[in-house]
């Protein structure tokens, strides 16, 4: 009886539903396009999902803690543009500087977010919306919108460092960048942090019941500071990754990506109200959105339909997750 209900719970869990949807979608795409059913698809998808994964994992952490961060695209743009600009101006050419600077810049803006949200208790959505304009406007105002497309050599080299290269039977080669290690390390690190450290549990605790967390002895504000600063720093790393993968530093190209990221996180089973969410769910959510984004054309859907279809799927996904969350709260009490 007990195990039976556990199994049915497992089958209707978010993860299971996403896996099923992923399978159905893959089969549908595979039927239309045989080329899809190959290892190269995995490589393409993995490459496409790198950035999304980094940002989504960050967003997940913030949402679990009971907040939300829509300022990360602007933070990322600053953390990408400024270091590269400095490298070009002062002819610095190594890998430590850009990544170090990006982390510092990201952490700095994360700190400001933390002050606004944790100390001054401004609603996170509005606070980070304000920060987003503040940073992106400032960046464009001071540096203009020119893309820096001649990257320092070390960054370009990085672009050509591959984890492995797969040669398909057609003779085409598919390479996976070494940067893929970053989201992998982040995912593993975050899972361990969230599951096995007292502070990680604190993130869930403040998202679940802030006042109970304080009574229990969690340092609520300190945890929030940690979350926003850490996320800022990781977004900085993500920004540098984006710069290398796109072989350019642009003060605008990540703008507007917040929608997709939040959607991936929520579809992955993270409750927007805080306290619930898992790394595995978020990875699945990102995979789903990346798969759809990359294959709508293969399914014969015209480009100008894509935003709508994506928006629609996101509404469905979020509605599904929220309804499930509500149902579980209303479930018979034991």
């Amino acid at each position: 009886m007990k195990t039976k209900s556990r199994i049915s719970e497992l089958l209707t869990s978010n993860q299971a539903v996403i896996i099923m949807v992923l399978l159905v979608l893959s089969i549908a795409i595979g039927l239309r396009n045989n080329a899809f059913v190959s290892f190269s698809t995995v490589v393409i998808l993995a490459r496409a999902a790198i950035l999304m994964l980094i940002f989504a994992l960050c967003q997940m952490l913030v949402i679990i803690s009971g907040g939300i961060d829509v300022s990360f695209p602007a933070i990322a743009c600053a953390a990408m543009y400024l270091p590269v600009k400095m490298m070009l101006n002062y002819e610095i050419d190594n890998l430590w500087f850009p990544f170090g600077m990006a982390i510092l810049i990201g952490a700095f803006f994360g700190l400001i977010n933390a002050v606004l949200i944790a100390s001054l208790r401004i609603p996170p959505l509005i606070a980070t919306l304000g920060m987003n304009s503040l940073i992106s406007g400032g960046l464009l105002a001071f540096f203009g919108s020119t893309e820096l497309s001649r990257l320092p050599d070390r960054l370009n080299e990085m672009f050509r460092s591959y984890l492995f290269t797969y040669t398909a039977s057609s003779g085409l080669t598919y390479s996976l960048t070494i940067l893929f290690i970053i989201p992998v390390v982040l995912a593993i690190g975050l899972s361990i942090f969230l599951r096995y450290t007292t502070m990680g549990r604190g993130v869930y605790a403040i998202g679940g019941n802030r006042s109970a967390a304080r009574i229990a002895g969690f340092r609520v504000i300190r945890i929030q500071y940690f979350v926003y600063i850490f996320v800022g720093a990781v977004v900085g790393i993500g920004a540098m990754v984006s710069c290398i993968l796109n072989r350019a530093a642009s003060p605008t190209n990540l703008m507007g990506s917040e929608m997709m990221i939040i959607a991936a996180v929520v579809v992955g089973g993270t409750r927007i109200t805080g306290g619930h969410g898992s790394v595995s769910g978020t990875i699945l959510g990102v995979t789903l959105i990346a798969l759809i984004q990359n294959n709508l054309i293969m399914l014969g859907i015209p480009t100008h339909w894509q935003p709508f279809i994506l928006g629609f799927l996101i509404v469905l996904g979020t509605a599904f997750t929220s309804l499930k969350a509500m149902a579980s709260m209303k479930q018979a009490k034991v």
Partner: peptide, 21 residues
């Protein structure tokens, strides 16, 4: 459905812009 307004209208913005597109 008692979904959070922030989430609904965030999705909505994508949806309506998508329809317009």
């Amino acid at each position: 459905l008692r979904l959070p307004p922030m989430l609904v209208t965030l999705c909505g913005s994508q949806l309506y812009a998508g329809l317009a597109l």
